[in-house]
């Protein structure tokens, strides 16, 4: 299929960079730190910690869940901002944008491919946190059937499935942000600027989400459902938040994808 070559090349570009691996390693370090910290401090944790932290010592699978909870507000959006902010601005900064365009990769196709790379990174980042969490949990605490929020207990296999679903939820949650980053990336030739702006937006949106005065705005914030993956730990699974989140993120992807297309396809490539 013509065009798939560029797709493969884009994935190779993202995942052959040392920067990408450094970021994935940093993300993987979060569950490791959680597990080691819980292991070293004997006894149940006192006071308030991240949700489910008190379950970690009893079941290593919760390392993965706590890891995702800890990464979703800042670390994950940060790394996604780096990748998404770099998409077009990075190419412009290197000057390779002009060579891609005269290759010719049409501007629309280039955007799709670039977004695809960022979206796959989102998935990889979420999976790294989950997978490292499960493995370190297995090593330090052992794993077993998970007790859900509803009080029901599900077998190990299903528990792993739920963790996989949570990782998918987290990845989908980040796709809207990736689309915003893609758009910002078309606005500038300075990748660092696009990365910073995207990261700032992800934090700003979470702050807005905490202001009760802006109730009317909350359902439209892309960060609104970021923590909703706890609903996958209910019995039966509450799919509503998964669906609402997916719909919201799809809206962001469409809107900011279209904006990015408008911008990139009318922009003079002068870098």
């Amino acid at each position: 299929m013509p065009g798939s070559a560029l797709l493969v090349s884009e994935l190779a570009l993202v995942f052959r960079r040392r920067r990408t691996w450094a970021m994935l390693a940093a993300l993987g370090a979060v569950p490791v730190l959680v597990a080691v910290a819980v292991r070293l401090t004997s006894g149940p944790p006192t006071g308030r910690g991240p949700a489910f932290l008190d379950r970690v010592a009893g079941n290593g699978l919760f390392v993965a869940i706590v890891g995702m909870f800890m990464c979703i507000p800042l670390f994950l959006p940060l790394t996604v901002s780096v990748v998404a902010g770099d998409t077009i601005a990075g190419e412009a900064g290197h000057g390779t944008l002009r060579y891609l365009l005269i290759a010719p990769a049409s501007r629309g196709r280039l955007l799709l491919v670039k977004y695809f790379g960022a979206a796959v990174f989102c998935l990889a980042a979420a999976l790294v946190v989950a997978l490292v969490g499960v493995l370190i949990g297995l090593a330090l605490f052992g794993v077993g059937p998970v007790t859900l929020l509803s009080g029901d207990t599900i077998p190990l296999g299903e528990s792993l499935g739920r963790i996989g679903l949570m990782a998918a939820y987290v990845a989908i949650s980040l796709w809207g942000l990736a689309a915003i980053g893609l758009f910002i990336s078309t606005l500038t030739d300075v990748p660092v600027g696009a990365m910073a702006a995207t990261a700032v937006l992800s934090v700003a949106s979470q702050i807005l989400g905490q202001l009760p005065q802006l109730d009317w705005l909350h359902p439209w914030l892309f960060t609104q459902h970021w923590f909703g993956f706890a609903d996958l730990l209910r019995e039966p699974i509450l799919w509503a938040s998964f669906g609402e989140n997916a719909l919201l993120q799809a809206g962001y992807v469409l809107v900011f994808g279209a904006l990015a297309y408008g911008r990139l396809s009318t922009k003079d490539v002068l870098s």
Binding site: R48, A51, M70, Q206, G209, Q210, D215, H225, W226, A230
Partner: peptide, 20 residues
């Protein structure tokens, strides 16, 4: 008051006009 690292707000409230 959300727990630290807790959700910024009620993750269930979905529809526009949901309360705090």
């Amino acid at each position: 008051a959300p727990a630290s690292f807790g959700p910024p707000q009620d993750v269930q409230s979905a529809g526009p006009g949901d309360g705090p």
